[in-house]
Design a protein around this nucleic acid. Structure first.
Lengths: 205, 205
DNA sequence: TACCCTACCAAACACTTGTTAGAAAACAGG
DNA sequence: CCTGTTTTCTAACAAGTGTTTGGTAGGGTA
């Protein structure tokens, strides 16, 4: 490998690192004030630069949230697929999926908030077609898991499947609205509490 | 009562009715596209008029969502207070509150969606101070109910109270994201399903 | 018919928005 | 110290924003 080649590679890596850094602060500002209500000047300000300077790194405001969301979903599905590949029964899979979700919240809370709040409004845009794809995969995954669990007795069989699916799907992401890393409970502990609620309910026994 | 007086009263009533009608379509557009991303011209278009004409009825775009949200919360707390006044044990109260919430979704879905999506961003504005007040009342109501239920054995006592509170609080509004009046299930039926989930969990017994 | 008031339109306003183009700084390697 | 490259700034643009002002159609009232 020529030194020339190593240089351009190092430069490319540095540029990618700076992009990731900027995307992180952009995600936080977008999550805090809402994507549409956030100005590129506000994002730039949080990053310590002027509005126009962002366009050296990104094509547009839209491409920023695009990269944030697609990166988030890619990482998330990597984790989900690992859980699914592990196998081991419906309850174990459910525990794994919920735990992975809470770890995602712990790892990149802003992206989760953004996904929750903005995905619905962005989805109609063809550029964000992967959002609808991901949602379909979500549905298939959860419905399949619930059906399997109902058949083998892991879960109750007398619940309305579509309602339960939506309940689980949405429930998983709720904590992103209030969870703060470094608080009283860690991600895995909150996941435990949620799993206890979803599996056993709140009624006294 | 003079005829003159009756006239002005009739006119005032007609004007109020028109305002309510316009607020209904505004709520739908805001809920569909997001408040910040929605243009007053889009609201006016949905109402069959031009952008500026809205300012005959309302001071500003902000006063529209203000009126939508405050009206929604007023009606909601009227229902909640009725349930609380009825008394009758923790589980009965919980059932009443959840049912009332789903009826609110059924009655004014757009307002619920708006409340869910925009409240957090509007709350810092002093004009929307009632949002924080309402949230505090929510918290006190649910925490009190959960503690009471844990004491008298209606609910389990081994769950983390703050986590359960947030779980219940958010769970109640989730259906607003997908529920459509006139669908397969009515509001009371969806409430039943949700209550079964929250109370008993999904595990097979 | 003449009047008036309600509800809307037409057209503009000041300002903010995302975005761009060129200049200047910061920084590297020789 | 020079030179080329990377990154940021300056300054502006065109389009779109919430909002205002003055006009006007139309229906009820005298």
């Amino acid at each position: 490998m020529s030194p020339r080649r190593r240089d351009t590679e190092g430069a490319a890596a540095a540029r990618a690192a700076r992009r990731t850094e900027l995307l992180g602060t952009a995600a936080e500002v977008f999550a805090e004030r809402g994507y549409a209500a956030t100005t590129v000047r506000e994002v730039a300000d949080a990053a310590g630069m002027l509005g126009g300077s962002l366009y050296y790194h990104f094509d547009s405001k839209e491409s920023m949230i695009d990269e944030i969301l697609s990166g988030f979903l890619t990482a998330l599905w990597r984790d989900y697929d690992a859980v699914l590949a592990r196998g081991g029964g419906a309850e174990r899979t459910l525990r794994g999926l919920v735990t992975a979700s809470f770890q995602a919240i712990d790892r990149d809370r802003a992206a989760v908030v953004l996904y929750q709040n903005e995905a619905k409004h962005l989805a109609p845009n063809p550029r964000f077609g992967y959002l609808a794809e991901s949602r379909a995969r979500f549905r298939d995954m959860w419905v399949g898991l619930l059906e399997q669990g109902s058949r083998d007795g892991s879960f109750r069989a007398d619940l309305d499947a579509p309602v339960v699916y939506r309940f689980i799907r949405d429930t998983v992401w709720l904590a992103a609205g209030w969870y703060r890393p470094g608080g009283r409970l860690g991600a895995d502990e909150v996941a435990q509490q949620y799993l206890a609620l979803v599996l056993e309910g709140i009624r006294g026994h």
